[in-house]
Amino acid sequence: MWLIVCSSVDHSALWMHERLQARARAPAALLLVEGLADVRIRWRHAVGRSGTSVTLRLPDGNEVSSAELRGVVNRLVTAPLVLLDAVEPEDRDYATNELTAFTASWLHALAPTVINAPTPHGLVGRWRLPLEWRVLGRRSGLRTPDLHLTCTAPGDVLSESDQPSTTLLAIDGHVFDQRASSSVQRAVARFSAMAETRVLGLRFEGEDPSANGWSLLDATPYPDLTLAGDAGVEALEQALTG
């Protein structure tokens, strides 16, 4: 069974769930973060000699168990922090850290394949700053616009956000755009490998990236999953199947 873990307002993840269900290569269930904000859920997450496991017993009596999951599409950007509404203000930071740390661990243990896997720098995959994306882009062979950062004028990157740009979906190093040449595809494969992130949104300069020499601005581990249509769904299926 596959599981999509996301928020109820993550429309592209909900769309992906529908498409995976419709294609029926494997049963695809949905777990909403809003549903996790319920103290009646019983959590059991074990690590030890016999490996790792996670079981959630839901209020309706159903269980979500790592023993039954082959793959997870992870779209959790935050832990279910609504749970902490009742926490005293002086304990809130501590409780937030505890809940986020717990969420990272159970997500990591939920299935043999979790895409994107949680990291210490983002539950949904590693977030990076523009400098890192640009250097990774350069090292992978993509063009990137110049970047200049100083501790006295941090505005360079902010000013770029108004420029026209195009975000493309990349899964396991393949970017879904027919205009991408084989050399661009190879560079994206290197970029994805160096970023250690299986699903990425790559943001290129201009409305037509090919007309701008495939100049990479930055990337995100939390892209719109509808960007590549059914080709993206098929690629994600393959990634989940491993």
């Binding site: 490998a193 160096m194 992130t197």
Partner: peptide, 17 residues
Amino acid sequence: ARTQYQNSTKAAVPDSL
């Protein structure tokens, strides 16, 4: 993470970083 990525994708991870 890199090892996990490589195992899961069978991709060669460049060493340039």
